[in-house]
Amino acid sequence: MRDRADDARRLIACLDLTNLNETCTPADIDALVKRAQTPEGDVAAICIWPRFVAQARAILPETIHLATVVNFPAGGEDVEATVRETKQAVADGADEIDLVIAYRRVAADPAFVEAQVRAVKAAAGSARLKAILETGELTDPDLILSASEAALRGGADFLKTSTGKVPVSATPEAARILLQVIANGGGAVGFKPSGGIKTYEDAKLYRDMAEEVCGAGWPTPDRFRLGASGVLTDLLAVAGGDGRGGETSGY
């Protein structure tokens, strides 16, 4: 059984520390970059709006990935606009692209989603592509399954549950569907639950589920990410053996 403090450090190393607040400022980005370099080790990545990518790239250590969002949060159908957005983000220094798929098209036309992901993957080049499925809006397990399979056929490097901008974000039920699709495909694609992850226990639940479905040792930072901002305070408290932080606001 893992030591709790060490376990919390492992989870910190899998965190995509996020600021996608509408009121985010350049000063907030500077603060996020500093916060990402914690006393208990660096987070895996920061995830920010595209307009801040160049600023963050200039000050972010190379050991921390730089993720941004495209087609976010609405999940629209203008593929050409999303391709342009992706190319600009990569040019500005992003090395991970979190794409909101056109999730409203999944029921009637999953081939559209597959083609959308494929086009954005091509535009992303060597950048890692995470497909955000917005599982809380799909609701039907069959639709979540269809979205997952379409994203994988399109070449997504990660399946991600949510934007964190709708009432229902990551849930264990949706997470298990995504993980089973990943496992059935050989386990090479990563998994990112996002939104609503507030505590060490929340983070551990998803990490343990990933290990259960995909195998012992599978959830490394290359294959498992946590999309959150509020959870870091609690993870640091557990890692440091201090009183629990219990931060509850934010992504």
Rank of each mutant, 00 (worst) to 15 (best):
R57Y: 11
R57P: 03
A58W: 08
I59T: 14
I59S: 11
E62I: 03
I64L: 09
L66D: 13
A67P: 07
A67C: 13
A67E: 10
T68H: 04
T68C: 06
V70R: 00
F72V: 07
A74K: 00
A74M: 06
G75S: 08
G76I: 10
G76C: 10
D78H: 10
A81I: 06
A81S: 15
A81G: 14
T82N: 08
R84E: 03
E85H: 11
E85F: 05
T86R: 04
K87W: 01
K87E: 13
Q88I: 03
Q88G: 07
Q88H: 08
Q88Y: 00
A89D: 08
A89C: 09
A89T: 03
D92K: 10
D92W: 07
L99E: 08
L99Q: 08
A102T: 11
R104Q: 13
R104K: 12
R105N: 10
A107S: 14
P110R: 13
V113S: 03
V113M: 06
A115H: 14
A115G: 14
V117M: 12
V117N: 08
R118E: 02
R118N: 10
K121F: 11
A124P: 04
A124C: 05
G125F: 09
A127I: 01
A127V: 00
A127N: 13
A127C: 11
A127D: 12
R128T: 13
R128W: 12
R128K: 14
L129T: 02
K130H: 11
A131R: 01
I132Q: 04
I132M: 07
L133K: 02
L133C: 07
E134K: 00
T135N: 04
T139V: 15
D140L: 04
P141G: 10
L143C: 04
L143Y: 09
L143I: 07
L145F: 07
S146V: 12
S146R: 15
S146I: 12
S148P: 13
S148K: 05
E149A: 11
L152W: 11
L152R: 07
A156H: 08
D157S: 09
D157G: 12
D157M: 09
L159T: 02
T161S: 11
S162I: 09
T163V: 03
T163L: 00
V166R: 12
S169G: 15
S169F: 00
T171L: 06
A175D: 11
A175W: 00
R176G: 14
R176H: 05
I177K: 02
I177L: 10
L179F: 01
